[in-house]
């Protein structure tokens, strides 16, 4: 059975079913989009904190991650060759993300070259480098914000249309950044103020956890479709990635270690572990929430139900089987 016909069989089953899960943004190439989203967040976060902590290596890594993210996005598109058409940012968050990535990659390169290339035709602090700095900064800000809005503007998937998601994904982007730094430092033994980072990490981690719980609380209180999505997350197709990836690895481990670290400063290894775990968690929160996405159902439309129920009120026949 060819891939397509496999997809086809799946689609037929989905179209028959009462509730239809979204698969375009999670299965096959769809997975690349989630990866792309994840990487762009980490990249932006890492860039931010590398600037804060004046950590050039971090900047380079952030840039590389962003480039990967761009590649993942391209790999996801049905028509990658047309990517340059995606600049209509009037109302499209995807377009804003694309602009952000472009600014970031474009500006980033201008800013980084003089830092790492002594032979660079322009110097750090020069106008070009300055311009690059601000372009990348603007790109970074867009990258930090856009993806949450991509989801929350997806009216077809009620589970996503929540103002909490942008906040949540912003938090995760920042945390991803910190985490990446932790990893980088620990690996090349550079000693940044890791306890400060650890604290930051812990603080964002806890707030993220709180947001997730709040989010699920709200969702399980709303329409059947959202509730179904919550079920998918807690008991269904997305459960494993949610419990293991998002909760245990992504929040449990970092927060756990982080708390123990409140007293004594953490070993580099522990710091690395916290970082890795957080990064993994960052990916899986996006993965789980995407996977739990269910399309709005047509027959559940209030009017249709009320109005059509009327006809069902036929003269009752008390049939004896």
């Amino acid at each position: 059975m060819s891939v397509t016909s496999g997809r086809y069989e799946q689609l037929i089953q989905d179209l028959r079913a009462e509730v239809r899960p979204q698969r375009e943004w999670i299965e096959r190439q769809g997975l690349l989009l989630i990866v792309g989203h994840f990487l762009s967040g980490v990249a932006a976060g890492t860039w931010l904190f590398s600037l804060v902590f004046h950590f050039p290596a971090g900047l380079a890594v952030a840039y590389a991650i962003a480039a990967l993210s761009a590649a993942a996005h391209l790999g996801f598109l049905g028509r990658p060759a047309r990517f340059w058409k995606m600049w209509h940012a009037r109302s499209s968050w995807i377009a804003r993300g694309f602009v952000g990535l472009t600014l970031f990659l474009g500006g980033g390169v201008l800013y980084l070259i003089p830092i790492f290339l002594s032979a660079s035709p322009w110097q750090s602090g020069s106008l070009i480098a300055q311009a690059g700095y601000f372009l990348a900064l603007a790109g970074m800000i867009l990258l930090l914000f856009y993806k949450g809005f991509v989801y929350s503007s997806s009216k077809g998937v009620p589970f996503w249309t929540s103002p909490i998601l942008p906040a949540l994904y912003l938090a995760y982007a920042l945390r991803g950044g910190v985490a990446a730094l932790l990893v980088i430092c620990s690996f090349n033994g550079i000693n940044l103020d890791s306890s400060a980072l650890g604290l930051l990490e812990l603080w964002i981690g806890i707030s993220a956890a709180v947001m997730i719980l709040f989010y699920l609380g709200v969702m399980s209180g709303s329409s059947p479709i959202e509730q179904y999505s919550v079920r998918e997350l807690l008991r269904g197709r997305a459960a494993v990635s949610f419990y293991v990836g998002t909760l245990l690895v992504g929040l449990g481990v970092p927060i756990g270690i982080g708390l123990t670290g409140l007293g004594a400063p953490l070993s580099l290894g522990a710091v690395a572990l916290v970082g890795l775990a957080s990064v993994i968690g960052d990916f899986f929160v996006k993965y789980s929430i995407a996977k739990a996405g269910i399309y709005r159902s047509l027959t559940s439309s209030p009017h249709w139900r009320d109005k059509s129920a009327a006809v069902a009120g036929v003269p009752p026949l008390s049939v004896k089987p």
Partner: peptide, 19 residues
Amino acid sequence: KCVGCRACMMACPYTQRYY
């Protein structure tokens, strides 16, 4: 013009778009 990003499928509240 379509790049096949499927954002519109996620946005359509009536599942009327097909990839």
